[in-house]
């Protein structure tokens, strides 16, 4: 299992691995939004948490089809399926590797990009916290979508259509945590809902992902 994490991280860091792709996309969104909506700081700081969340979500979506497609193309997915690793373990590890290379850098860079959007000072910690709790769910749900569409040529569109509706609850509660945090309201309820979604998907979805992956490998 650890070997698979190390391999996936190493592949992501090497040339063509797409490590900076999500981060660069996130930067582009946060830089362009102020140009689009105008420089009014009150308006920007009002929409900042939502923009950061949408940016993170789309950046996550960008790298989803790579999770299994590359392993499927070069045949290593077949070999992994016949290896001693359980398929549920393989998909969980793949989701973890995706989160470490995409979700985690987004969480860590969010405070920096928040400055570009006039995110209020007290909002930084809430945005980071909500992203830290919410982005694992994005990776796990995305892994499920990637497992569903593995083997389809140009499956990216179908993947987006399948995965985006499943991302909506995470987006709603994630952005709500940040908004309430900034306004000084209680964040307990959306935070618990966000955590519930994340832990629920981590606990249940790998089984579904492993199942559809086995069907797709036939």
């Amino acid at each position: 299992m650890i070997a698979l994490v190390v391999r996936d991280l190493r592949l992501a860091m090497r040339a063509g691995g797409g490590f900076g792709l999500g981060l660069a996309f996130f930067l582009i969104v946060t830089v362009l939004v102020p140009f689009g909506v105008g420089p009014e700081s009150t308006l920007l700081s009002k929409i900042a948490p939502g923009i950061l969340w949408i940016g993170a979500l789309l950046a996550c979506l960008l790298s989803l089809d790579r999770i299994f497609a590359l392993d499927w193309e070069d045949g290593s997915l077949d070999l992994l399926a016949t290896s001693p690793l359980p398929m549920e373990g393989v998909v969980s590890i793949k989701a973890l590797a995706h989160w470490v290379t995409t979700g985690l850098p987004l969480c860590l860079s969010a405070p920096l990009f928040g400055v570009l959007l006039h995110l209020p000072d007290q909002g930084h910690k809430w945005v980071v916290l909500s992203l830290l709790i919410g982005t694992p769910a994005l990776s796990v749900i995305g892994t499920f979508g990637s497992a569903l569409t593995v083997g389809l040529k140009r499956g990216g569109l179908l993947l987006s259509l399948l995965v985006l509706p499943l991302y909506v609850p995470t987006l709603i509660f994630g952005a709500e945590v940040a908004r309430r945090g900034i306004e000084g309201l209680s964040t307990a309820t959306p935070l618990l809902m966000l955590g519930g979604i994340t832990f629920g998907t981590i606990a249940l979805l790998p089984f579904a992902s492993a199942l559809v992956l086995r069907v797709n490998l036939r």
Binding site: R7, R10, L11, R14, A15, G16, G17, D74, G75, S76, D78, L79, T82
Partner: peptide
Amino acid sequence: SMAYAAHSDGLKATL
């Protein structure tokens, strides 16, 4: 007990 080797070798080009 089985080791399977298919048409494609399952190699990672950058490793």
